[in-house]
Design a protein around this nucleic acid. Sequence first.
DNA 1: ACGATCCGTTAAACTGTTTAAGCAGTTAAC
DNA 2: GTTAACTGCTTAAACAGTTTAACGGATCGT
Lengths: 386, 386
Amino acid sequence: MEVLYNPDAMDMPDSQADMLNELVAKPDTPGQVRGRQGNGSRAGGARRVSMREVAQQASVSVATVSMVLNDNPRISKATQIKVRRIIDKLGYRPNRLAQSLSSQYTRVLAVLLPPLRHAFSDPYFGELLSGICDRADKLGHKIMLESAKPDFLRERKHMELFERRFVDGMFCLGVNDRHHWVRDFSDAGFPMLCVNNYFPELNLDYVVADYRSGAEQVMNVLLQLGHKQIALINGAPEAQTARDVLEVYTARMQEAGLECDDGWTADGRFTEEGGAAALNEILDRHPDVSAIFAGNDKMALGAMHQLVERGRNVPDDVSVVGFDDIQQMAFVNPSLTTVHLPLYEVGTRACELLVQRIRGKTENVAERLATHLVLRDSTSIVPGRR
Amino acid sequence: MEVLYNPDAMDMPDSQADMLNELVAKPDTPGQVRGRQGNGSRAGGARRVSMREVAQQASVSVATVSMVLNDNPRISKATQIKVRRIIDKLGYRPNRLAQSLSSQYTRVLAVLLPPLRHAFSDPYFGELLSGICDRADKLGHKIMLESAKPDFLRERKHMELFERRFVDGMFCLGVNDRHHWVRDFSDAGFPMLCVNNYFPELNLDYVVADYRSGAEQVMNVLLQLGHKQIALINGAPEAQTARDVLEVYTARMQEAGLECDDGWTADGRFTEEGGAAALNEILDRHPDVSAIFAGNDKMALGAMHQLVERGRNVPDDVSVVGFDDIQQMAFVNPSLTTVHLPLYEVGTRACELLVQRIRGKTENVAERLATHLVLRDSTSIVPGRR
DNA sequence: ACGATCCGTTAAACTGTTTAAGCAGTTAAC
DNA sequence: GTTAACTGCTTAAACAGTTTAACGGATCGT
């Protein structure tokens, strides 16, 4: 079962739904009372000042005002000062819509999140989002949130964001091989960047954490601690990063001459519940398992919880290692050994690169940021008694 | 020490900073190559079709095309079909910037988050955000993210969002008494709504979870379990909801004839670290404490972690109750007893009400959504030995 | 003295949409 | 018999800016 968005699960009683329908923005219900005459005192606050008025008061043309605002060197110092004084006096603010309409530039970037029920409250996505937002702010861009729900894509809404000039660029988070629509962007030549996921064969821009080296570090520490029965709880195999982890796990196990067939791995779908279920599978098949390598922290948490439920002590009986290093994991009991992914930095870097691409840079972008292991209390040396 | 946004903490090496500076959007660097002629093949995708072209091809006026798009009943069936056929043929998409410029309506809502380092990756905010976004999507609105950093406010950027026509309305999350700028919105008459926080004396719109009744439920269960040494780890006292919790705690303790002076409460600043530190304070002052009531789940987690560090068993020695019911808390060991706040629903409801206000509704909005206790494993009956 | 260059400014065109006002003919109400 | 409200559509003004060709006057070179 997938943990996808389920519209029914969050529906409301009919009476409320009726009220809701009335609210839906219909093209022919302007909603706001307004006259064509425009500039009277309107519902939302103070009288609006336009560039025309500034020009009149300063006895120059609108073109001059525009040039003053854009620091055009052709404007004389005297005019600069004169116009700026009027601007301050009237409290004039340039209308961003008019600017964008003219400049063909919205300075808005969309973040496309997977339609998971808790996508926004997932610290993994949140950390990426933090990085993206902070850097976007510094670069003078706004961030718009979108959720890649089935009908969002079916109705080509992801393309409309560009076609209808909502945004200049787009970040895709949590995408995988099944999301064939990612090609739409590159086909149409719209600036898009995959964040912490990639498609080796697709030639799309991406910034990712280095999952392979992270996995290497996990395997190193587990093997050094003497573990021989190591199970892998991995996320969806349609994600390239998950396949990277699996490959490293398999390679290192074989290298060490240890058993690692399908029975030693289970799909935890990146969730706590999935992690718990996967642990059950593994424990049923291999009661002697001594270490669990989870593909993300949420699955690790679910697995730890289930281990305790089934009477195993962490780390005395079984060691657990996570992946991501989300903040809470330092405070669970026992605190979780995990691979720190520089998610915040992945976000900031992604933002820089997307903006570069929007500014006309054409080379392909593919960056991989270093990870490191964080040793905490959920791992221990394999007990002598085994 | 405050957990506020620290620009230095996330800064980069100088070389990178230089590169970054070049990227910052300056008004006079259009960046994108474009000619006045407008409609040639541009960097971003297919040739853009305007309403003018549709009108020409269909041999009608642009106004007719506009009316067709807006399902204006004055348009005949025949014209409807004729125009729509051309629209499909040309793949025309109305330009949202032009629509907004003309209609004075952006259909964009801003979410203002506190400038905490991990605000986005905090499940508490995430859950509110999920609700807001889902409902906004259904109502045909877009969500824009903003972080209330000090200079954001100093430069009046929060007002510019309205003044420069970025957004139609705004949600404020995580605001408290120190955030005097919330008045700016109502003073200017801009549609704003406080989400899960309120100002009793300020007459601002809000939607909150019922913290008082939640606190009542916590006190009920702890007292029924026989606890007498109950400590409160509360969040910032400048938040009204935190004061609500404190008031209920004090009232119920006094009612039960139990001690509850200042020594029994500590400020945990809503974070795991703060919760851990607060627990230390309390445990030093009252080693016999038998129950901890935390004002949110993160503080509860920090407290639980620290209890274990200091050799106390949860729940055998000390019971812990949280507040919020964020998802992970069902999977920590022991799973956390907590008050479920309908954060997702607070978000959806907030969105509905803000949209109503934008549509001209003028009555004040103040809604309080019911909460309920979720009993899990971190609480137990007080041991006979005490 | 005449043409070329430069400088600051302006008018006009441009971005792409919505909407009020109007066209001339028909019908219903007063 | 006049008034009003339709009919389906067009025109033109508005929304609020940016951009550019052109212009007049001052400066400069020959």
